[in-house]
Design a protein around this nucleic acid. Structure first.
Lengths: 206, 206
DNA sequence: AATTTCGGAGAACAGATGTTTACTGAATGA
DNA sequence: TCATTCAGTAAACATCTGTTCTCCGAAATT
């Protein structure tokens, strides 16, 4: 069955996670490129040298945070696309999922938005990779719907990217919104998705 | 006519501009929140204390960079929207303008993309303000077109935001693209705009 | 010609940074 | 039980940071 980790390995993963958590917290008001190694270890209550037992770098830690941040949303969206066939209800469902995910994992999403174009290349690249996979999956989901009959693969891909970019943009807007803004953002995002959906339906009219 | 500045004021604005230029250069591989004051003055060849004659803060300098970065694009887009009536040609024209602007002012655009969700609040807010003005102007431009007859102000605004977000996303993609990617990005952006344009035409069908 | 204004320099401040080196002590595995 | 592995420690390293204070000299003003 599940292999019980040795006491040592368990302790190690524990402080590794503590480092990740502390870093994520500190990154709420800061960029990764200005985050200090000592700052992180101090927040955990561990010596600066202990850091090197888990990560080479702060950018190494950043890459780990990318995985942690986008893994769950990844599967959530994919599940929604599989279960919900009707394209119109799918729109509402997608916006709901994004809104919910931002509320539940606000620091993670903020980290992604902040470092997507940030100053640390390896982290930027890790995020780009994840978003590309996202687009792949959305494209696969879209291709299954009858509305996509007659579309070229390239056009499906183009549409998927439009959806993903819109997701990211919407998530970013939720981040900096006050609670009373949220309703307006939700409404706008839904109508924007409807515009795209309409354009999709008439794509082959020409 | 134009008031010739005194020698002193001229020299002052000169080193002020040198500070802005140096900072912009350093921000190519870094975030504003990790940029050092001394680092900037060193690059200009001026003493650290001189900095305070021009800016209170590095975030103060950042806000100045926002104005410098978005001012010109601002007017360029507005001119394009005024001169070009045909919505379809307008799409191509818009993509051209963005692509050209990214090529001509790459460091400025990179700065905007990097600090839009960055760790320095005043800079984030300055960028948000500028983008809101952008959306205002695009909305005004869209409202003038016959396609917008029967639209509510709110829906026009919603559409304008969709266009602006798409502009920003496209610009960001150009930033990290290799030269051979550019063609693909241009093609995708154009088709995405066409999807939106189609959805716009059928918005009132329901 | 005499006085004021003011952009910039220089030195010094306390404090912070990443990284190295050598060491400890408990969990591991023979 | 004994030897080994290895997560975490402690101290010291050279170097960098933002900011204050005092001063200088040329431009501006009178």
């Amino acid at each position: 069955m599940s292999h019980t980790l040795g006491v040592r390995q368990a302790r190690k993963q524990q402080t590794r996670q503590a480092l990740l958590d502390a870093a994520l917290g500190l990154l709420e008001h800061q960029n990764l490129s200005s985050l200090g190694l000592r700052e992180v270890t101090r927040a955990v209550g561990v010596s600066p040298t202990a850091f090197y037992r888990h990560f080479q770098d702060l950018s190494d830690l950043g890459v780990a945070l990318v995985e942690e941040s986008l893994g769950s949303l990844h599967s959530a969206i994919q599940a929604a696309m599989a279960e919900q066939r009707d394209p119109d209800r799918l729109i509402d469902r997608t916006v709901e999922i994004i809104a919910g995910h931002v509320l539940d994992h606000r620091p993670h999403i903020r980290f992604i938005a902040r470092e997507r174009h940030g100053g640390v290349r390896p982290v930027r690249e890790a995020i780009a990779t994840q978003l590309t996979h996202f687009a792949d999956e959305v494209a696969a989901g879209l291709a299954l719907q009858p509305v996509s009959d007659g579309w070229t693969d390239d056009d499906v891909r183009m549409l998927a990217e439009l959806y993903v970019d819109h997701m990211v943009t919407t998530a970013s807007q939720f981040l900096e919104a006050t609670p009373e803004d949220e309703e307006r953002i939700t409404s706008t995002a839904r109508r924007q998705l409807r515009v795209i959906s309409l354009g999709r339906r008439h794509w082959l009219d020409s």
